[in-house]
Design a protein around this nucleic acid. Structure first.
Lengths: 214, 214
DNA sequence: TGTACATCAGTGAACGCGCGTTCACTGATGTAC
DNA sequence: TGTACATCAGTGAACGCGCGTTCACTGATGTAC
């Protein structure tokens, strides 16, 4: 925290630094409280050690803070998936499995950050059409869908390599995605339940829904 | 609504009638706003056409109203599943499919009511152990798990009839349950996405995760 | 049958709280001359 | 080099709002005698 005299202000021209501190404060609150509703303008200001009105120099309103947190969360998830399914795997089935495990690991390691991703999709989303083409999606949505694209491509690669019997990789990848989401959400919301080991569940989902052969 | 002079009060001894009106008002708000947070003591009072303090004669606090809504939602879901998988099916696979379709139909037809079921499980849940025995679960939790029990039994019946290759019906039923949950949640939260037909998705989930043969 | 009274269902005003947002401001820092 | 001043980062007090909850109350209804 700061000296009791208040915050030592940023140098001239460096006011933008506070923006990052505000977002970081919001992220800490989200992860600590586990609920997006805990991100209020005043709670963020308290966490950042500043006066509430100071936020308005950097964000139009409360929602803009949450949007910033959201953008970061999507980018982290996207980056993680891309890294994991990257060039280190020669076997497409291994790559797909690795990507799926990375996805649920992220979701379970940073539960509130994962959940907020899907809380917000209701509002302001574009209407998407088949076939999904990233070029048609507004820029801010691109990174949000890229993790999913990797999944479709991963399964398609298995089909191409003769390792999957899927006749509709898009539908099956979609089903795999939502199934992993459900497995994550239920484990987070009903922690008292005797859940089977998550790794085995993920393997089973990929192999069965993805119709992996051999 | 009532005459402008205010509510015509219930007869003596019939004060309990207001309890049902309060719960009904809360359910209307939940379904209309789609968010449990919209159920506030004052919003419920407004919806029911009564003064806010009148609620305290029937509920200890705001949370008690939500609890009542929750109990009703669980009972409705339980009843629906039990009815659907009941004695009308001779084929265990047909019974399992019918139960699963009924589950997702409920969830999609009354989205807010379905969602609130799982919002609340975090708090005050019992710690459950394997094997799951309904007798060990506190009464109020029994109906909440019964829908799930039906699923495990449905899959076990398929195994017994030689129609499923599952070697762990509990784990597979769990996986099937969470997968349906995820499919429902994603369709509700990301309505702009080009989702494959839900019926086909449910069939695929049951057949593949349940390892249905023949 | 009439009347006094206890009971019960429900109300209106008020409380303190945290919220988002606005406004006029402060005071350090850099710049023009 | 010195000084007046504009700019910028951030503040403190205040606003109206809806919230949960409390309190003393009202007035119709049924009951005892």
């Amino acid at each position: 925290m700061n000296t009791s005299g208040g915050r030592t202000r940023n140098r001239r021209g460096e006011g933008g630094l506070l923006r990052d501190e505000i977002v970081a404060a919001a992220e800490r609150i989200l992860e600590r409280e586990g609920d997006e509703a805990a991100i209020t303008l005043r709670s963020v200001a308290r966490e950042a050690g500043i006066a509430a009105p100071s936020i308005y120099a950097h964000f139009a309103d409360r929602d803009a803070i949450v949007e910033a947190v959201l953008d970061i969360a999507f980018e982290r998830l996207r980056q993680l998936i891309v890294d994991t399914t990257g060039d280190s795997h020669t076997d497409p089935v291994e790559a797909l499995l690795a990507g799926c495990h990375a996805y649920v690991d992220f979701a379970m390691r940073e539960p509130a950050r994962y959940r907020v991703l899907f809380n917000r999709l209701r509002e302001g989303r574009p209407e998407l059409k088949l076939p999904l083409r990233l070029e048609d999606v507004p820029p801010r949505w691109r990174s949000r869908l890229q993790a999913f694209e990797v999944l479709v491509e991963g399964l398609s690669a298995c089909v191409a390599a003769g390792r999957s019997a899927s006749t509709d990789p898009f539908a099956d990848a979609t089903c795999l995605w939502t199934s992993m989401h459900g497995a994550v959400m239920m484990r987070q919301f009903v922690p008292g339940f005797p859940w089977p080991p998550f790794d085995e569940t993920v393997d089973a989902l990929v192999l069965r829904i993805g119709r992996i052969t051999g």
